[in-house]
């Protein structure tokens, strides 16, 4: 039996979290760091600085005046957002050249970004904190990252899974459960754990297909699960199958939301995903 840990450990050429991203992550997690400290780290990496500034100045954030320094970006956006930007830039780059991807790469990232945006909006809508809103974005963005790892490093099994998905028109997750001892959720979580992402985010990735069975962080987990479902209903990108899972029983009650709220989240997603094209541009 192979465990996700064994798979992740056995991948020697797995992208490692670059020092600069790890440092930013560390600084954000420490209580004493200043915007200047983060500037010092990011500014040393010119490609990364450029990307962060490009994202900050994109229509996605819509600031009226051009932001030209990382320190300024950090002050305006907050530590968490800059950490998220840094990570997004890295994740896209790390898997950009993935040639073995069994599904359309662009559609896959649109699915991911749309889930991030939707999760962030739901977190805001149900009254969670700014930090939780940012975690929701990150977790939404990365929720299916395990699928990319699978295509890249256990491509034979993944090919079979995709074949089953196509032949029986089922969910990726269902085919995966038939064929493997683990899922893209646990693979993704293991990878992110290795990258030292906060455990609060790692556990969301791990549980995004069964949010109602978790004890801790249940609300956030429900948010990620619902985001995945909503973006499928809006045909925003494609996460590797053509189907939609049912909304788990009790999920809407857990979040204390109704259909009016869902309608609003859907409209916001349709609107904002169009604006987020800068994230997609980073793929190229």
């Amino acid at each position: 039996m192979t465990t996700p840990q064994e798979i992740i450990e056995n991948i020697s050429e797995l992208p490692t979290l670059p020092d600069v991203v790890a440092k930013v992550n560390q600084l954000v997690n420490s209580a004493s760091a200043s915007a200047g400290d983060i500037n010092d780290v990011i500014s040393r990496d010119i490609a990364l600085s450029t990307k962060v500034l490009k994202m900050v100045n994109s229509s996605f954030y819509g600031f009226p005046r051009r932001i030209t320094s990382i320190t300024h970006a950090v002050v305006i956006l907050g530590f968490n957002t800059v950490r998220n930007l840094t990570l997004s830039a890295f994740v896209f780059k790390a898997f950009n050249d993935s040639k073995r991807l069994e599904f359309d790469q662009k559609q896959f990232w649109i699915h991911s970004i749309a889930a991030g945006i939707t999760a962030s909006n739901i977190a805001h809508g149900v009254g969670l904190s700014q930090k939780e809103k940012e975690d929701a974005f990150m977790a939404g963005l990365l929720h299916d990252v395990g699928k990319v790892v699978m295509c890249e490093y256990i491509s034979d099994s993944t090919k079979k899974i995709i074949e089953e998905v196509k032949a029986t028109d089922c969910l990726f997750y269902e085919a995966e459960k038939n064929q493997l001892d683990f899922t893209h959720a646990s693979i993704g979580a293991t990878l992110l754990e290795k990258w030292n992402l906060p455990i609060s985010i790692v556990s969301l990735i791990n549980n995004h297909h069964h949010p109602m069975s978790v004890e801790e962080n249940k609300k956030m987990c429900c948010i990620i699960s619902l985001s995945d479902i909503l973006v499928r209903s809006l045909c925003l990108g494609n996460g590797g199958d053509e189907k939609i899972p049912v909304i788990p029983d009790g999920l809407l009650d857990e979040l204390a939301i109704g259909w009016g709220d869902i309608n609003g989240f859907m409209d916001a997603s349709l609107h904002e995903v169009k604006k987020a094209s800068v994230f997609i541009e980073m793929l190229t």
Binding site: D169, R232, S233, C235, E242, K243
Partner: peptide
């Protein structure tokens, strides 16, 4: 997309 879940009230 919804063909297998349309009997579910929420879906």
């Amino acid at each position: 997309v919804f063909s297998k879940v349309i009997d579910n009230e929420d879906m």
